[in-house]
Design a protein around this nucleic acid. Structure first.
Length: 105
DNA sequence: CAGTTGACGGCCC
DNA sequence: GGGGCCGCCAACT
């Protein structure tokens, strides 16, 4: 059943390495940008972290989720750095690393 | 079935 | 320019 959750999972899992997406962007791609909260909820469920790189999903501020503690938020930032995403002050340059339409529809 | 929550976004003060 | 409040939709209890 392709619920909004599944759709969001699909999109997030499609984020290329070295790129990030905002909740609003994922929501917009999912169908409605107002689903930002739903996106957060979906990622909160996160049935499969290996399939859903939630660490590539950041909020509008470009900052990672504070509730994203699977071993330390610093660990998440380190992951992004390892992927080539420059994290400054626990924040990402959305203008530079924001995923546009690399994979296209 | 109805109420509340929730990893957010945008607008207003 | 910064901080705070309200709104949105779906999922969960």
């Amino acid at each position: 059943m392709e619920s909004v959750f599944d759709r969001i999972y699909n999109i997030v899992s499609q984020i290329p390495k070295g790129k990030v997406l905002t909740y609003g962007d994922v929501a917009k791609r999912a169908g409605n940008k107002r689903w930002a909260r739903v996106v957060g909820y979906a990622l909160h469920q996160n049935p499969d972290q290996s399939k859903i790189p939630c660490h590539r999903v950041v909020n509008r501020e470009g900052r990672v989720a504070q509730a994203f503690v699977f071993g330390g938020e610093n660990e998440q930032i380190k992951l992004l750095l390892s992927e080539g995403v420059e994290v400054v002050n626990s924040k990402v340059d959305l203008e530079k690393y924001r995923w546009k339409e690399d994979i296209l529809l």
